[in-house]
Structure formats: C-alpha cells, structure tokens
Amino acid sequence: MSTAKKQLPRVIPCLLLKGHGLTKSVQFKDFKYVGDAVNACRIFNEKEVDELMFLDIDASRENKKPRIEFIKEIAGELFMPLGYGGGVTTTQEADLLFAGGVEKVSINTAAYTNPQLITDIANHYGSQSAIVTVDVRKPLIGGYKLYSNGGQVPQKVSLLDHLRRMEDAGAGEFVINSIDQDGKMSGFDLKLITLVSEAVSVPVVALGGAGNKQHIFDAVQAGASAVAAGSMFVFHGKHRAVLITYPGRRELKDLFGIV
C-alpha cells in the first residue's frame, strides 16, 4: 500500500431553487430569499467553485416535475460539475437534464420506491452521475430517521439499510443532509458523517450546518469526501446579509495543510 499526498476535498455550494430565485432555509423552514438564481450562478462561476448543486424545493415538496428548460438555461453558463435534485422520477427526465449539461442527478424521494431509477442512471451515465441524497433527522430518543418529500414524509427504512440498498442499486455518491443542522451554521453532525462514511464505500458529501472553514475541515476529518453548504456561501455576518463568497483554492490548501 502506498501513502500519498492528501487530496483537497470538493467544496460545493448547495443552492435551493424556489421559482426563479434562490432561497435558504433553517431546519427546512423559515425560508429567506437570497437572490436571482441565474445571477448567483454567474458569481459562483466567476469564483471557480469546485462544483454546484441545485435542489428545487418546489419540485421536491410539491411533487412537481423538474423545470428542465430553466435548469438548461443555468447549466449553459456553468463550466463546472453541476448537480441537480428535485422531482426526478424517470430516466427520461434524467436524460433531458444530462443533455442540458447537468453532470449529476440527485435522487431522494423516488429512491425509496424506485431504486431501479438509480441503476438505470448509473448504467447509462456512470455511477458518478447517480447521487442519492438523504434528509436525516435525529429524534430526541432513538436513531437517525429518514424523511422524503423535502423533509415532510417520514420513511420507515433505517438510514444504513437504505444507503446500502442504494449503493447496491448503483449510487455513486451520497449527500447526507442533516435537517437539524440545516441553516444553523453551527457545524455538521459529525457523528452522522462518521457513521455513514464508515458504512459505505462511495464518496459521502456532508450537507447541513457549515458556518465556517473549520466546519469544513471537521467534516472531512469525520470522513466526508466532499462538503456542501448553503448559508455559509450566501450569507455574511450575524444579520445574515446576502453576500456570495467562496474560499480560494490557496485558502483551502492551507486549511488542509497541503503545500
């Protein structure tokens, strides 16, 4: 076994689409308007972000179809890997998203009833393009619970059973979203990240709770291969003024002690 230089993890702004705008939640509620989606994307593109992820919360909460034309409009101007999630229930929808320039399609609600969708996407586009996102809540008593439909519908299957099933189906990456930590900017649920990353072999993306660079570092130490965040990259200061920021590559290398 050879030892190697550390790899810089991917740092992924995760943006919530609502109408033609972006919004940001706290614990999946209390939505605050952030700005125009196309404009925000242009800024993230200029900042040369590693990757971008869009979740359409209208689609996931209200069982609406993905807005293919709108996503295509956004993707046409973005030259980094782009992930999309929200309302994808068929391979035809995934085909249209991929043809429009989306690199990864995230399946959340549909994954509980139709794992074949993951398999079909992985077979055709490679497993790296088939993301499964899970929304997780930690009740006061007992283990982690999964929720679908934008955090509204509890699922019976256990977290690790679900993830293993999805890995078998062909998922190439998991986005683990903590509902409890969402928008709090107080750090990730590190126990959750470690639990999941030790149980699966594909990359795990931590989402929910990032407020500063140290949180990013902690999530990677806990086992995440990549880190996603919303509030951290769109809000500034204690009054949560909207300001799009993203750490520079040198800044991230220093954080991880990479020369």
């Binding site: 050879s2 230089k5 550390k6 991917r10 590693d50 790296q128 190439g172 072999s201 990359p203 990549a226």
Partner: peptide
C-alpha cells in the same frame, strides 16, 4: 488505481473524483 492511503493513513476513495 491500487488500494492507497493518504498521509493520515485514511484510505483514498476510488473513484478519484475532484479537482487535481
């Protein structure tokens, strides 16, 4: 890619995915 680990002894995930 062979099985590999980084300086901290953590296994490197395959696929290699990201900016290099």
């Amino acid at each position: 890619f062979p099985n590999m680990q980084d300086e901290d002894g953590k296994p490197l995930k395959i696929p290699h995915m990201g900016w290099t």
